[in-house]
Structure formats: C-alpha cells, structure tokens
C-alpha cells in the first residue's frame, strides 16, 4: 500500500522516493487520468497555474500563497518538468495531490510532457542522475500520455461564456471545442496536427490570423482567429501558459486571452515574477503575483550529484 502522506512529506524535502512507489503512483495516476476527457469539464471557483518547470520550492511557495489542495481547487496548465532541478519531485507532488484529491486538482499536458522534449531539456538527465537508470523517467512519460489536453470551465451563473484552458493555444485544424474529443490522446505528442498545436501554439498581437511559429511546432494565431474562436464556442477567455511573462501574466486580444506563468525567477536567473489566476463562481478574474523566495527549505536548489563514479 502507498503511504501518500509520507511520500508527500518526503517529496517536499527532496528525499529520494523508492522506484517501486513511483511506479505504483504512476499506475494509479493512469487509472484516474484515463477517466478524464480530452477537454476536462471543471466548475469554478478554480485557481489556474502556468508553467512550473521543476521549480519545486517555488511550487511549494505557490501552495503556501494560494492555499494547499484541497482548500483551493487547482488547474495546472502543463510544463511541470524540465529546466529546473526538481522536475521529478514537482511532478510526483502534483500526482500525489491528484491521487489524493482527484476532484480538487487537475493536470493538463504541456509540450514538455513528452519523451522527446524531456530527453533534451533536463528531466531525463535528472532521473538518470537520481536513480542511475531511466525507468523512473519511463513511468512518468507513460503518465504524460494519459494527461488531458485542456479544460473547459463553465459557470452556472454567468452566461457570458466559459473559459478554455490549454497549454499552448489554438489550432487551424478545428473550429469548435467538440472536435477535440475525437482524438485518442494516449500517444507521444505528434510533430504536427491538432494535438500538437494545442500544446505548442502562441498568440501574436501583430498578425491577424495564422502564421508559422518560430518554435518549429504549432502556429502563431492573431486577433481575428482568437476572436472568432471565442465567439463560435461561446467563450469569454482562453487561459494558457507556455510563454515566459516577466510580470507573471499578460492579457491580450482585449482581455480575450491570458498567458499565465507560474515559475518565478525562471531557470533560477530570469528575474521574472510569477502569477496564478483565480476564477470565482462568476468567472471573475483575480491574479495573484508572487516572486521567488527561499523559505523553510532544507537546501539551496541545486542539481543532485551523480550517485557513483567509476574508474
């Protein structure tokens, strides 16, 4: 049996979690996530968080500021891993909360929740360093495949339209949210197509419609496309993450789209602040901005040294 409380406690202290426990956690998470739809329907009030990128201590600070689950209901917009030094702990903590309070915390997939990207940007190396083999990374990647692609937040009392939450943005492949339900999402993030775009696209204020993305995946979408999509799907807002915002959040397209970024002092050196977006029952927006301060943690965030070295 898993002792979730003990695991949560150890994860917060950056202790090494036994491989078997991780495997067990990942399996339980799969069983939960398989029951979620591609675009998960969630009721407000909810607090929406952007990229975390393995900055465990900043995530802990986020939970201190915005209250721990289950007190607050959370939606994380993906990119839990890579870049920071505690990708594994960050993801495990979120999984533990997910398993413990499945209706109080929701996780959707970011472009970094992929085998290919994590092999390059740190998560794979981190697991190798901490465990000496890649199996922990494999278990986590299997969970990534089950993550929802987005969420739809609908207010019972507000008729102005709901909020669509995705990691990246829109796709030229679809006009309505319903079309997303025809994807069998359990797969590695493809290089193009609808599923890829949802995780990779960016809004761009200086263009009207679609343009090629400099990232090499997804698209840039402009004012008219965003406007059209909002209208057609009766949405008041598209909430997304995916791009560093120095001020923590940024609304564009007359408030029709917001980028939320929740990793303060990104990569431990960008000097930015972070934000979370809270939506109340009527989907009114309230942003909480916070910066990176080390509090009650037992060590300076750093990479773990390799376990053994041989001659």
């Amino acid at each position: 049996m898993l002792h979730l409380d003990k695991i949560i406690e150890d994860v917060c202290k950056c202790k090494i979690i036994p491989e078997n426990d991780i495997q067990e956690l990942c399996f339980l998470a799969q069983e939960l996530l398989i029951q979620e739809s591609n675009i998960q329907l969630i009721d407000p009030p909810i607090t929406i968080c952007g990229d975390i990128h393995g900055q465990l201590h900043d995530l802990l600070r986020l939970f201190r500021i915005a209250k721990e689950p289950p007190t607050t209901k959370y939606l994380f917009l993906g990119d839990f891993v890579d870049r920071g030094f505690y990708s594994l702990e960050t993801f495990l903590l979120l999984l533990c909360y997910k398993i413990r309070y499945p209706d109080r915390i929701y996780l959707i997939r970011g472009n970094h929740e992929s085998r290919q990207i994590t092999s390059v940007y740190g998560f794979y190396d981190e697991c190798m360093r901490k465990y000496g083999s890649a199996n922990v990374w494999r278990y986590c990647c299997d969970v990534f495949d089950y993550l929802s692609l987005g969420a739809y937040i609908m207010s019972g009392t507000n008729s102005d339209g709901g909020v669509l939450c995705v990691h990246g943005g829109l796709s030229p492949a679809i006009e309505t949210i319903d079309e997303i339900s025809l994807i069998d999402r359990k797969q590695e993030v493809p290089h193009d197509g609808l599923m890829c775009d949802l995780l990779w696209s960016d809004p761009e204020e200086n263009i009207p419609a679609w343009a090629v993305s400099p990232r090499g995946a997804g698209y840039l979408f402009g004012y008219t496309e965003a406007e059209r999509f909002l209208f057609k799907n009766n949405l008041s807002l598209i909430a997304r993450a995916h791009q560093l915002v120095m001020e923590g959040y940024k609304e564009v397209f007359d408030g029709g789209l917001v980028t939320v970024w929740s990793a303060p002092n990104y990569c431990y050196r960008c000097g930015n602040v972070a934000a979370v977006l809270s939506l109340d029952d009527n989907l009114n927006r309230n942003y909480t901005v916070f910066d990176s301060i080390l509090q009650d943690c037992s060590e300076i965030p750093s990479k773990k040294p390799v376990a053994d070295y041989f001659l």
């Binding site: 996530l33 398989i34 029951q35 979620e36 739809s37 591609n38 329907l41 089950y146 339900s181 025809l182 994807i183 069998d184 999402r185 359990k186």
Partner: peptide
C-alpha cells in the same frame, strides 16, 4: 455515456 479517454479512443476508430 462517459466523457473520457476510452470514449474518445472508441470514437476515433469510428471517425
């Protein structure tokens, strides 16, 4: 009647 991954996977075959 379930709005979940299994449903999407089945529908994707019909689609």
């Amino acid at each position: 009647n379930q709005n979940n991954l299994a449903n999407s996977a089945c529908l994707s075959v019909l689609h």
